[in-house]
Design a protein around this nucleic acid. Structure first.
Lengths: 214, 214
DNA sequence: CTAAAGATCCCTGTTTTCAGGGATATTCAT
DNA sequence: ATGAATATCCCTGAAAACAGGGATCTTTAG
């Protein structure tokens, strides 16, 4: 009995690559390939009883990304395994995926052999995460402990946002109907709290946190 | 006579996909696959007389990226065509590539058919750029006219980069072995040139242009 | 060759940031 | 109810940024 797989990736050529790898093995039956998660969600809805063993998915896709897809899949049936194949090495994204219970993660620059190993491992019921992904995950957990708890208050967020929008202290004070001294206090606290040296550091933080356009 | 191709992409699985597509055609002989530009540069150096028709390359790769590779290739021989296959749709990057005289650009989410068409077109001596890429390029040229040619010199880039890395004027001066006054001049010019108000604006620009991590 | 652009340096002021102290009132959870 | 966190405001002095001038030399493009 072959395993039934579904593949989602918005990069057609990459899909072709995956297909050619999987077809050269004889254990896998590709039920469906899709260029976003929505197609798959629909397929699952229409075929609620079909035996599906594994869904291989990219993270960033139009319409519905891999994370949303995984959520839907895991909600429907925990029998369907999910393997993420992506080039993202953003720690928060990896964290997110692991917490959403994906069964494996292999970077796109992995060798064909690793991909096949990941698939086999997952189909046998275990999880598979590449060394690289595990390292990033651990590193992240570890360093999080260090800076831990950099939580800004709403007021601080207001201030840092305006700072990153190039307003001077006086202008920010006027906008928020506060004293210039107050803004100076906030700025001082922000610099200390975020462990940066000046406006450039605050600006970078604001961008990283998406408080401002960039 | 088959055409001789070289392929560079740091995503192994994508490479496999390309290979399987190209091997299913019978016109192409793959001389070399590489996961960064450096390998190819070395190959070109070692085999200066080999007939190479086309190099297919990704943009972002470790060690040596597609842009640097293209520069080397075009400097060595204009007989070697270059086709970029990438998922980037950053207008400046596309602009950069076109100005560096690549022969074509196909996004990674293109169909296999388009890729093959691009290869054939380029091998016949014409250029091939996907509709999508052309649109982005044009759009960019058009809007550029509005904010008018903001070109920074290398020195200015050095300075704005260090500014965005939170160094003070004095520190930057020391790093670049320049007078503090010089850095102040650069900062002043940058603020005027980029139409921003202060360090926050410079920092945002540096991030947008990818001069610093964020 | 000449003009423009780039890289370097300098000056004078003013404004702003930054570091380091404090203060008071309110809110919120234990 | 008490103490911690938050929001607000204030001060001083030093350092840095910002505005608006110039100057000189080299490299580059027409």
């Amino acid at each position: 009995m072959k395993y039934n797989l579904i593949i989602a990736d918005d990069h057609k050529m990459f899909l072709d690559g995956l297909l050619s790898i999987l077809n050269s093995e004889n254990d896998y039956n590709i039920l469906l390939t899709a260029k976003n998660g929505k197609h798959i969600a629909k397929y699952l809805e229409i075929n609620p009883d079909e035996k599906i063993d594994l869904i291989i998915t990219d993270i960033t896709m139009p319409e519905m990304d891999g994370i949303a897809l995984n959520k839907i899949v895991k909600k429907r049936s925990s029998n369907i395994k999910t393997l993420v194949v992506s080039m993202h090495n953003n720690p928060d994204m990896i964290d997110n995926l692991i917490e959403h219970d994906v069964d494996g993660y292999v970077p796109k620059n992995a060798e064909k052999e690793e991909l096949l190993k990941a698939i086999q491992t997952i189909l046998s019921g275990e999880k598979y995460f590449s060394r690289e992904i595990k390292d990033i995950y651990m590193e992240n957990k570890f360093s999080k402990k260090k800076d831990e708890e950099i939580k800004l208050t709403q007021r601080e967020i207001d201030v840092i946002t305006l700072i990153a929008q190039e307003f001077t202290t006086q202008e920010i004070a006027d906008k928020l109907f506060l004293s210039k001294h107050t803004i100076e206090s906030y700025r001082k606290n922000l610099i200390a709290k975020l462990n940066v040296r000046n406006l450039a550091g605050l600006t970078k933080y604001a961008i990283k946190m998406n408080y401002v356009e960039h």
